[in-house]
Design a binder for these strands. Structure first.
Lengths: 221, 221
DNA sequence: TCAGTAATCAATAGATTACTTGATTATACG
DNA sequence: CGTATAATCAAGTAATCTATTGATTACTGA
């Protein structure tokens, strides 16, 4: 075999390490979760519905291909995305959305089943959310809100929403968001809000998308 | 299992179709080749050093994940990249380059073995090539040159280089390029040119990279 | 209609991968 | 020092993937 053939084989073998890392749905879900910020193994396993051992193994695969980094602090190991990986993941996701009709079909079917199909343009909802003309709700857990949120959003985790409805003005439209297009918190939040008589819309993007799009996010409480 | 868990599983399963498609070094090499333009199965098999049947199977995997499209014309089937795939591939390659030290190590070792290690900055070489101050050689086969090339490049396929050296002015620096950073044609061309007394440099990017960077390419003869 | 060529299909063996289970390591804390 | 907890390791099985081989299909042109 020629030296240049061997060279190419070696180089593409390396490229394929990245490909193999993202060849598993569960590893992609782990990356998706890590786009929200660093997490411990336990939390990742829980959110992705994996056994602890299985999650640990997937995380080690991702780590071996350098897509994530681990940091040990006391009893816990915290994993975080490596630089450049968020953009790559969003690119992969976007390619799947644009090339694989099944993604949209599945999403539509799921939304339809909960009566959440919207006729409103996503960019328009984001514009309204940024304009200050509507009440913007971040329905993720508080820690995630604090790690980064839309400038004029207020944190009302889904679990607390019903109890805190009195905080919300009834004469303004509400826009709710969560982690991104495939997170279900905001869908549920909009359902609750409408049930209670609010005019509510879902913003079907999340902090990772906005960061990639260059939207300035706020942090802290 | 909850409906939202099922929904997520289905969605990430779809995303993983893209991941699985790029989990094989040979499929990545096929995508790399297809970045240069549409090709028949035979040509792809030949360039990627695959048996015809094996190449066909890999192409069908890529096609099933919608990364490439096939068009049958007479006896030949021509495959081409689907929209958005070139950018995704370059993103994956870039991530591998930035995250996997082995890629650079392998490349450096290969270049060093042929005495082709350069101390010149890649962006600077491209600037010179675009400036018109140097002779720019496109050493790929003529068809590829015609499909798209740097504005002031001239086509001198590597196979013809020695025979056509008299066409080149000896008092100007020569910059040679080929398909991209992992194509070896330009490396060889620079070796030949230096052997013959020219001052020659290699431009280690190619048409796909320039398209992605927004450089206007010329087409035709 | 028949021969020749491009491409695909089908079947297979060998390698790789995913998930489970039970054991083990490392750290914190009483 | 011993116990509890987070995480990893190790081994085994089932499933999946890769490359090869030989057969088959689809089209061209004599």
């Amino acid at each position: 075999m020629s030296p240049s053939r061997r060279f190419k084989d070696e180089v593409f073998e390396q490229f394929a390490r990245i490909g193999k890392a993202v060849a598993s749905p569960k590893r992609l879900e782990l990356l998706d979760i890590l786009c929200q910020g660093p997490r411990t193994v336990e939390v990742l396993a829980d959110q992705a519905c994996l056994s602890l051992a299985n999650a640990s193994q997937h995380l080690q695969v991702l780590r071996a291909s350098r897509l994530i980094e681990a940091e040990k602090g006391g009893l816990y190991v915290t994993y975080r995305l490596a630089p450049g990986v968020e953009g790559f993941y969003l690119g992969l996701r976007g390619l799947a959305e644009s090339r694989l009709a099944e993604v949209e079909a599945t999403t539509r079917a799921f939304l339809a089943a909960r009566g959440a199909l919207e006729a409103v343009d996503a960019a328009e909802v984001l514009r309204r959310a940024l304009s200050g003309a509507v009440t913007v709700l971040d329905v993720r857990p508080v820690e995630e809100f604090q790690a980064g949120h839309l400038p004029n959003a207020r944190s009302v985790p889904l679990a607390e929403l019903r109890a805190r409805l009195t905080e919300l003005p009834r004469d303004r439209e509400v826009v709710a968001y969560c982690r991104g297009p495939y997170c279900v918190l905001a869908i549920e939040a909009v359902r609750v809000l409408r049930e209670e008589g609010f005019t509510a819309l879902r913003l079907d993007t999340g902090p990772p998308d906005w960061r990639a799009a260059g939207v300035a996010l706020a942090a802290g409480p």
